[in-house]
Amino acid sequence: MKSLINFFDKVGYSITSRINRLGTAARLFFLILISSGESFKRFNLTMKEIYFTGVMSLVIIIVSAFFVGMVLGLQGYYTLQKYGSSEAIGVLVALALVRELGPVVTALLFAGRAGTAITAEIGLMKATEQLSAMEMMAVNPVGRIIAPRFWAGVIAMPILASIFSMVGILGGYVVAVIVIGVDEGAFWSQMQANVDFRYDIVNGVIKSLVFGVACTIIALFEGFDAPPTAEGVSRATTRTVVTSSLVILGLDFILTSFMLGG
């Protein structure tokens, strides 16, 4: 009987602590929105973070996009060839990247590269009392440290996803046209004719914006909420990757359902 009570006690504690963390994250999100004035008035603070989260992520984004595009070109060609429509390879690569892989893979890579860096940085700032020092200097750490990083993530993500799609298409082009020998005119013209700006490109940008908000808020919250110890920061960094990945994939399904349904 006692072990059963302990079991329910643990389950209850786990549920309430998760709800509590969700509430704290939502509170941080609203605090960021309220304290965002500084991020735009002193845009150099946000620009510095865009460089850190966006520009510094370019190498991993470009290299991954090129390989993803090449694999898509290769796999797509061998499948389409069976149905005698290998010229449609350009459309397949472009739609797969613009609608799905561009936003999703970019967000997953962003969570692994920039998200973890943000969590570790904020967590260490907390552990070394830098955030407390800022508070004692009458400077709001949410406005000065958290909000510029949030907006930098939100701005950088759609740009990174666009670059990912562009480079991915180039990778598909290299494999399909240069290596396999698909007609170049058919590759580009079919892509131009079948990729819709509003339906495909804008929806892809909307997805990456939503992922940008989700990834950045998770990374910031985990850092801000991390216990001020080495172990606490390390656990928070791991949680950032795990939570971000699951949230991105879950949100992708929900957004795709709405977009295809609409």
Binding site: L124, T128, E129, Q130, S132, A133, E135, A138, N140
Partner: peptide, 19 residues
């Protein structure tokens, strides 16, 4: 509170310099 803190300066145990 921020107005009051502008009258205060605090030295933290390990300095808490912005790294």
């Amino acid at each position: 509170i921020y107005k009051l803190r502008r009258k205060m300066g605090m030295l933290f145990q390990h300095g808490a310099l912005f790294t």
